[in-house]
Amino acid sequence: MEHLLDEEPEKTANKLMHADNIIDWLLTMLEKGNPSSENFLSSAEVLFALIQSAHQVILNTVIR
C-alpha cells in the first residue's frame, strides 16, 4: 500500500477515502497492537503516507 501511495498518491488516496475499514483497522493496530511488533511501525507508516498523500492532493488541487 505504501508503494501504491508513492507511485500514484492521488489515485490511491482517492480510493482509500472510500475504504473506512482499512483506516479504522490501521488505527486499531496502533491503539491495541504490540509496539514491539513490526506491524505496529508499518501501520503507522502507512497511515502517515495516507494522510500526507491526501494533503498532497489538496495542494495539487489548489495549484491547478
Binding site: 496502533l30 509496539p35 514491539s36 513490526e38 505496529f40 511501525l41 507508516e45 500526507q52
Partner: peptide
C-alpha cells in the same frame, strides 16, 4: 521502531 512509529503518528497529525 516504537519511536519511529510515534514519529509517524506525530507527522500524520502535522498533515
Amino acid at each position: 521502531e516504537e519511536h519511529e512509529a510515534l514519529v509517524n503518528v506525530l507527522d500524520g497529525l502535522c498533515s
